[in-house]
Nucleic acid binder design. Structure first.
Lengths: 227, 227
DNA sequence: AGATAAGCTGAGATAATCCTGATAAATACC
DNA sequence: GGTATTTATCAGGATTATCTCAGCTTATCT
């Protein structure tokens, strides 16, 4: 689950369908906005930049293809999935030319739509990657193997979780509270120096042989992965 | 249907074509990533290991043949299908020598490409295979026979299912929850050490005669098949 | 420089996890 | 219906990860 819910903009002139899709997406925990024609869709997208756009292809006034093109021409990067009535190669090519990322043929099942949305939102999420890397350090979530260069490193479960959290946010300073919540999963009672102890364990294992330090202390705040 | 959609990495410098292929694969329900040159392709493949790679042969910078060779040299196992412009015997031979599994000649129909992709994913899907192997250990799903080297091993139904699950995910750490769900098929009530007991049964049978351990325990997480 | 706070370190206590052997319950087999 | 086999439970003990603590070092501030 992402830390904050993703924003999705639905641009669709059939208000019935728009309502339905909005409800389903909301139910899944997304933050949904709806526009009922191309022009207000464009404005909504500019106003409050969404993480993903669902765009009807056949709309009166400003057609989907045109909305898509204008969005892209202003540098918008988010995935755009268009909804098209006919399964037509020409349509797909037009969508591609306009800068869309995917399409769904109406009528569609809601599960299909949700799967698409998930897939596109996930694509660039480091939380989802199975292998992470920082400098010469690599961490594989599936095999739970960690390497510094070609030296394999044995970590305990907590050590691994901590390093996973650090390497998923390279160069970001993570506060003690964030680390406690993500790695230990609750507000640790009272004051404990458990984080310092585990940072130390990691340092001993990762920087054992005169290698340069990777985990930096940010006094008064927390820790960072940084060379 | 696979549990999670297969991940496909497209390495192609013609962005139009890459986009089109991405969209079509995405439409088929695959989880698609795109890289626009050889180097970023290599990095993408390492970061988030795909189940299949589509690789353009003619790219500026790092050529397809070189990308292919480097992937294989790092032990990557997934099928690689390369896209080549000219129907040239020398090219095909070079590709197969570099470790590719198949090729498609441009221009291709999208259906042809999809068919190849499906075929290779099916062939390589451990869920579908009838015989699985890890090191000297083999397991046949049809006959339900298991061998360590040439020594036949008698397993009970549950023991077989457990080993099947392990050997279908070699080197991957499988958590207790995953194992419980896959092998026992539900959330086991309360706390039970049934997994430990069955791991023990397997170890007694598989590693009886001073053979090296195959099933490793990952304390706090689960178990792995790893030498 | 001295005082204070923050982080580091080493050692050891605590608690969780896993292994083991034995035994009970369920299921299949004759 | 009785026996053998498989599956699951349980408790004791061994192992190791996790956590606490007290003293020490380093940074920050006046």
């Amino acid at each position: 689950m992402p830390e904050t819910s993703a924003k999705i903009l639905v641009i669709e002139d059939e208000t019935q369908l728009a309502k339905f899709v909005q409800m389903e997406l909301s139910y899944e925990g997304y933050d949904v906005a709806v526009a009922n024609d191309g022009l207000s869709g464009l404005m909504a997208a500019r106003d409050n930049v969404p993480d993903l756009i669902l765009l009807d292809w056949m709309m009166p006034g400003l057609a989907g293809v045109e909305v898509c093109r204008r969005l892209r021409s202003t540098g918008a990067q988010m995935p755009i999935i268009f909804l098209t009535a006919k399964d037509d190669v020409a349509d797909r090519v037009a969508g591609l030319d306009a800068g869309a990322d995917d399409y769904v043929v109406k009528p569609f099942s809601i599960e299909e739509l949700l799967a698409r949305v998930r897939a596109h939102l996930r694509r660039n999420d480091p939380q989802e990657a199975e292998a992470l890397q920082f400098e010469t350090l690599t961490l594989n979530r599936k095999t739970r193997e960690v390497f510094r260069g070609d030296r394999g490193i044995e970590l305990t479960a907590k050590e691994f979780d901590l390093l996973d959290y650090l390497i998923a946010h390279p160069r970001q300073v993570l506060t003690r509270d964030q680390i406690l919540e993500k790695v230990w999963g609750y507000d640790f009672m009272g004051d404990s120096n458990i984080i310092e102890v585990y940072i130390r364990y990691l340092r001993l294992k990762l920087e054992s042989e005169g290698e340069k330090r990777l985990i930096q202390t940010v006094r008064g705040v927390g820790y960072v992965l940084r060379e």
